[in-house]
Computed example of a mutant assay.
Amino acid sequence: MATAYCSPVLGPVLKKVSSSIWRHQNKIRCNPLVVVSSSDRFSKTALYFGRACTEKVNVKRMHKCSLSASYETLDEQPDSVHEEDEDYISRYTLIWRAVKLPIYSVALIPLSVGSAVAYFQTGVFAARRYFLLLAGSILIITWLNLSNDVYDFDTGADKNKKESVVNIIGSGSRTGTLIAAFMLLALGFGGLVWASIDASNIRALLLLASAVICGCIYQCPPFRLNYRALGEPLCFAAFGPFATTAFYLMQSHTRMELPITGTILAASILVGFTTTLILFCSHFHQVEGDRAVGKMSPLVIIGRRRGSVVVKVAIITLYTLLFVLGLSRALPFTCTLLCGLTMPIGNLVVNYVGKYHEDKAKIFMAKYYCVRLHSAFGVALVVGLLVSRMMINKPIIF
């Protein structure tokens, strides 16, 4: 009932009733001969509830005013509120970022492209060896991620990196994480050696060993060449000419050793190019932290704005190179056509980096757009090679 009294519609009526009751009560107080009847008692009760309800309305009005003032204060200080929201990242999101699942495309794409080139040239595909190499590659990429987190934790580069494995688990996990990383490296490289012995190809093993050495000198002390702006050339060599070519050679067998052809060199260059773009764009959101610890990444040297121009030039170079290799017939026409269809993704990378290169929160996603380009471009290469071979002859799978 009190709620009904407090409604906006009954407010004026309530006010009039309260005024008349108040006047009637004053008459009673002034005339002692007037006997208080039961109706008067009811009037007093009604007056009590009326006053209570009026006070309640006033309290609500005061509360609304205070809320409005609070909202105005928040509107005047949006930056602090947004910063607070940006600082908060759920543990689930941190774990997802630490796992870096999309980054494992850098294990899948070189292997798939190298195997597809071998299949294109010979019509032969060693499925069992492919999956053995895939397992070994995934373990080695995991070693790269874990050990990189440990070494960046040691130098302080990951001090504010919430998704670092060491920061998530705790600083006491540093040694355990490093031991686990090198155990994974031993298992992964063991798988590569096994596949090399199965393929009877020492050249492939030497190339894969060179790729792993690139990973070591990229991040491991005392080298740490990624602190001297040499991470990108090492990344290009490791995942492009070394790994992709090695996986191509792994598809050979004792009766047939594959030659190094223009097709595998062209494909490995393109794979190395898109992989290196992922690494380059991963520096955008870490410029301040890298500079503070003396890590001279390319973006620390040239800055974010020029870095966005480098990304644009890199994408243009990638597709120019694709069409040149297609015209020179180093790549089949189907590869050129299908890879050309990924240009909208390349354009997305350019526009995103160009728009948000100064926004530390949003530019974090740039590397994932590059992963999308890397994956789509690699799949297009694989499908183009497979279609070209199927147009020639029937495949052999063992």
Rank of each mutant, 00 (worst) to 15 (best):
P222F: 02
Y151F: 02
P32F: 07
A135N: 08
Y48N: 06
V34A: 12
T274M: 07
Y248R: 10
R29P: 09
L144I: 09
I302R: 06
E232L: 09
S297T: 14
L208H: 10
L178C: 03
D158S: 08
R51W: 01
T93K: 11
L270G: 03
V300I: 10
N160C: 08
Q25C: 15
S90Q: 07
I89V: 14
T244G: 00
K60R: 13
L184I: 00
V17G: 04
R51H: 12
R29V: 12
V124S: 09
G191S: 06
D75M: 15
R61G: 14
V293H: 01
T142D: 14
R128E: 10
I315M: 09
R129A: 05
C235H: 02
S137N: 11
G172L: 08
D152V: 00
V106I: 14
S112M: 11
S70K: 13
K100Y: 10
R129K: 09
S115M: 04
E83K: 08
T245P: 05
R329W: 14
Y48P: 01
S70F: 15
P78K: 06
A186N: 01
F131I: 01
L279A: 03
S137C: 06
V309I: 10
V17I: 08
V113D: 06
K295S: 00
C53R: 01
N393R: 13
P395Y: 13
L348C: 06
K360S: 14
